[in-house]
């Protein structure tokens, strides 16, 4: 991804921000913008930009075009009896400005709050352990979503060791192998925590193969991913009785023996 070109008008965060500034400076209402005046001032501000970068300033130019268009429409005679507010050429822009202003106000409010690690401080959290095994499941337990799994993956990738200085021939691991390794973990454990699936010395490729294997196993309903509390640890359990049954199911479905296409039960979205 290329570095985004940010046009830094002195203090403005975008065309809407600039417009709101001009409206405030002219002490007029958003609901009744003197479009000619504001358009002139808007264009004048753009010209003050020392290096108007066409690429990055596109958003400002689009707004300039909109303003000029509205200004031209305002010059047209208005049919007598049509008095609907939607017929005001400024209507759409007005709605957009009001909406942006609302969120901008909220943003100001957020920034003024007592922000953690800036204004207020707390102890570094101790990790509260997950519920003890065998404990009745809390009502809050829910199936972990794809987003939860991606969050957890992010955490694992973050703690990966930096790559070694000299290159060691890397072990390639297929998703099929990863599936077997994941299932092997359930031979003597009922539940495995998400993070525990990934050895600390695992390479990025291994982590990703394991993650893909995990997604596949969940999709095939061989494993279940559950979270005791929002943002809590994700626990994986077998959704079938035994590891052998799990392995059999994976093969039955033909995914890893190369016979693609036998699982037409339409639940690929899980």
């Amino acid at each position: 991804m290329t570095v985004p070109c940010t046009v830094r008008l002195p203090i403005f965060e975008g065309p809407l921000d600039l417009l709101l500034h001009l409206i405030k400076r002219n002490e007029v209402q958003v609901s009744d913008i003197p479009i000619a005046t504001i358009t002139d001032q808007y264009l004048a501000t753009l010209e003050e930009l020392p290096e108007l970068n066409l690429d990055g300033a596109g958003e400002y130019l689009v707004m300039a075009a909109t303003l000029v268009y509205i200004k031209s429409r305002m010059l047209l005679p208005v049919p007598e009896e049509e008095d609907e507010p939607e017929d005001d050429p400024r209507h759409e822009l007005m709605q957009q400005l009001l909406e942006y202003q609302r969120y901008r106000d909220v943003a100001v409010g957020l920034g003024e709050r007592a922000v953690l690690d800036r204004d207020v401080f707390a102890r570094d959290p101790e990790r509260l352990g997950p519920p003890r095994p065998g404990e009745p499941a809390e009502p809050a337990v829910r199936d972990a979503s794809l987003g939860d799994l991606l969050d957890a993956l992010r955490g694992v990738l973050r703690r990966l060791r930096p790559p070694p200085v000299h290159e060691v021939p890397r072990e390639e691991i297929s998703i099929g192998q990863a599936v077997e390794r994941v299932l092997a973990r359930f031979a003597d454990a009922e539940a495995v925590e998400f993070a525990a699936l990934f050895a600390p010395e695992a390479t990025r490729a291994e982590v990703i193969a394991t993650f893909l294997a995990l997604l596949e196993l969940i999709r095939l309903r061989v494993l279940r991913a559950q979270q005791a509390e929002r943002f809590g640890a994700i626990m994986l359990t077998l959704a079938v009785a035994t590891v052998a049954e799990a392995a059999g199911r994976v093969h039955d479905l033909g995914r890893w023996s190369g016979e693609e296409g036998q699982h037409g039960d339409g639940d690929r979205d899980r």
Binding site: E13, R104, A107
Partner: peptide
């Protein structure tokens, strides 16, 4: 001796929109 986390206006505005 830690620099407080930076919360720029674009970040705050985007957060406000996402939050609502």
């Amino acid at each position: 001796r830690e620099r407080p986390p930076r919360l720029s206006r674009p970040m705050l505005e985007t957060l406000a929109i996402v939050a609502y």
